[in-house]
């Protein structure tokens, strides 16, 4: 039976792992490759690396990082952060990345999704969507949640699927950093609407939140950062708990 995936997310700035609380205050949580290897051994099903460095050197830094990760890890990983062009993606895939995540660039120029899906296959393309609930309606936001767009979340997710996204990584900016649980209602609605897998992000605080996101939220994968980085929830402990709740997981 297909297992629900547990995905630690590593935010990278200047080659180091950091985690923003509500995307603002950054805390250093170590070397990305070492941390990734640690998670792989601990039983993580997949890893996401998001580069939040804003420099011209980014493309090279990111491909070097992808190569290092691919060399040392034997589980799949997604890499993203500031990807704008098909050339950025080509470099990352040649370095050994399994999937790339695109976000703002896809909102600004949706054809990028079609181009990447055509060139590399749907399974390579993860469309990341950050959204906030504004007066009862979910809107896509850019730049770490600072810029509101006119895109409605569900319409945009559906469009991304139709253009060739292989997965949607949905972060609720309202839940991110709160540790009060995932945006289960919106996630379930998205899951019913789409036929591609959905990675839930934002709000994980404890084991029960993951059980909720896989049942009520109908998510295919649950992503979190700080609770893993700072040892608040262990991957094995989490998977043991989910198995007890009859949720299919790959045992550690």
């Amino acid at each position: 039976m297909l297992a629900k995936r547990i995905i630690p997310c590593l935010d990278i700035k200047d080659g180091r792992t950091v985690k923003g609380v509500n995307f603002v205050n950054l805390r250093d949580a170590g070397d990305p490759v070492e941390l990734g290897a640690k998670y792989s051994l601990a039983g993580a099903d997949e890893l996401v690396f998001l580069d939040i460095t804003a420099t011209n050197e980014r493309r090279k830094t990111l491909s070097d990082l992808a190569r290092d990760i691919a060399r040392h890890l034997n589980i799949p990983f997604t890499i993203g952060g500031g990807i704008k062009h098909i050339d950025d993606v080509d470099v990352l895939l040649n370095a050994g990345a399994d999937k790339v995540s695109i976000n703002s660039a896809a909102v600004r120029r949706p054809e990028l999704i079609d181009e990447l899906a055509y060139a590399f296959g749907n399974q390579f393309v993860v469309v990341a969507v950050d959204a906030k609930n504004v007066d009862g309606e979910w809107f896509v936001h850019l730049n770490g949640g600072r810029v509101k767009t006119e895109h409605k979340l569900f319409d945009w997710a559906k469009e991304a699927q139709e253009r060739g996204a292989g997965e949607i990584l949905f972060t609720s900016m309202d839940h991110d950093g709160t540790k009060a649980g995932f945006a289960n209602e919106a996630l379930a609605q998205m899951s019913d609407l789409l036929s591609i897998p959905i990675i839930a992000s934002g709000g994980a605080g404890n084991k029960e939140h993951f059980a909720d996101v896989f049942t009520t939220g109908k998510a295919d994968a649950g992503l979190a950062a700080s609770i893993f980085h700072f040892g608040e929830v262990g991957i094995k402990e989490l998977k043991d708990y989910l198995a007890e709740q009859q949720i299919p997981v790959r045992p550690v």
């Binding site: 749907n122 399974q123 997965e167 899951s191 591609i196 295919d220 994968a221």
Partner: peptide, 9 residues
């Protein structure tokens, strides 16, 4: 409600 691609473990 199975998703395609079959992606995961």
């Amino acid at each position: 409600g199975d998703k395609v691609p079959h992606m995961g473990w």
